[in-house]
Write a protein that binds this DNA or RNA. Structure first.
Lengths: 234, 234
DNA sequence: TGCATTTTATTTGTCGACAAGAAATCGACA
DNA sequence: TGTCGATTTCTTGTCGACAAATAAAATGCA
């Protein structure tokens, strides 16, 4: 078990403890630094972050609320497992959310939204050019999150964020195992989506978002389809 | 401020405390027994439920995760406000979720799903016949939640549940102020939806769900539109 | 040796207490 | 009398400790 070096933070501000633990654990879960199914020991974390169990506990409860950790009564919480048998529901949902949020972004976006979206896309292109999967995955999430924000429907935004986060783990698994080079196409599709949003062509937004989602889903489904067949012994 | 009688529960099982507080607070929030914006005092709740602040706190964190309470740093948590300025995003989202989940229910439902759905619909019809708005509102939520479950997409189900809960507060406000009699139409529409699901006619499911949502939205929007104009002084 | 049972150990759930931060109260001063 | 500042009060955020519940180890027995 890889043991991280002691991270003792001295004299934090009151109330910053939970946020720190929450964000750090969240990032470690989404980058697969913490493997799905791994037990999470509260006292261990308390020692690692140099604080009491109380704020650790609150962070875990929050993460459990987002479905990132699973808690069993009187037993250790564990990093949420990825349910491959329900992967198709994930693909369904994220395709719909890509479509809806991009469409709404085309309808409701304001000038400064586009600046934010473009900034993320620039970072995305840079990550692809640098062949940095981890950065690409994180920025991809930020890119679509910014589009969802521009659509200005908090309910859609919330679900989209949840799906994008789950997607980070799936994409990480994908690029980790496959070790494929990062394709340029997605970056081009992002640019086309930006153009459609700026032109306020909602139907085009919808179509491009759907095609974008379909392409990613097709590629990943193909990979995991192979992988899952391997998991079934005969 | 109406003070509830002391509810001291003796010798609860370990771990049941948070669940109790969570469910009770949740219900009081959704039935508007606790007014939106009302501050929530932890020690007060601790005394009321006869337990320490720790489980109360955990319940509040969970409710905050669902958007039912809002927490401010070093300040009292408050019952989440209903943002009337974003009501249209709520209508948008619940209409889409009605359509998607009902369509999926038509596609993926199993025999026992229909039994559950029908049972809820029977309770719904009874509540309408008895002109009991509170029961009708709660059962309406259960009815559509059961349909979402039958659709077997946990992401859609989660968003639908959140919207249905928020809808409970809005409907309560509606029937509380308007004091309208409960219409029979919704019950008939529910029966039509059940028939479409059973027939596995996904397109009909979609259309009926949309019409069902549109009708409710139209009625409520009309009411709140009036009400909101009153809030704007000239 | 293999299995059931008791004992130990580990980890969570809850508690009471204390300190920090913000709101409310009080008081000084113009 | 009104305003600004200090003080008090009130509420939350965090801590350390203890007990319940589960898991692991040890023991007894066939």
């Amino acid at each position: 078990m890889a043991e991280v070096s002691d991270e003792v933070f001295s004299e934090r501000k009151r109330g910053s403890g939970v946020k720190l633990v929450y964000e750090m654990l969240r990032d470690e879960i989404l980058t697969l630094a913490l493997a799905p199914g791994k037990p999470i020991d509260e006292v261990h974390l308390a020692e690692r972050f140099g604080m009491s169990r109380t704020p650790i506990r609150e962070a875990l409860v929050r993460l459990a609320g987002e479905g990132l950790v699973e808690t069993l009564p009187n037993r250790s919480a564990i990093v949420a497992n990825i349910d491959f048998s329900k992967l198709h529901t994930f693909f369904d949902a994220i395709t719909l959310m890509y479509r809806v949020t991009t469409r709404l972004a085309g309808q409701y976006h304001q000038p400064e939204d586009l600046k934010v979206i473009r900034a993320h896309q620039a970072r995305y292109a840079a990550a692809v050019a640098a062949q940095d999967p981890l950065a690409m995955i994180a920025v991809n999430r930020d890119f679509h999150a910014a589009i969802a924000e521009a659509g200005r429907n908090p309910y859609y935004t919330a679900l989209t964020l949840r799906l994008l986060d789950e997607g980070r783990r799936i994409l990480r698994l994908y690029y980790q195992s496959f070790n494929d080079r990062l394709p340029q196409e997605y970056s081009d599709e992002h640019n086309a989506i930006i153009a459609a949003i700026e032109a306020r062509d909602t139907d085009l937004c919808d179509r491009l978002a759907r095609e974008h989602a379909d392409q990613i889903v097709r590629q990943i489904r193909q990979f995991f389809g192979r992988d899952m067949r391997q998991d079934v012994p005969l």
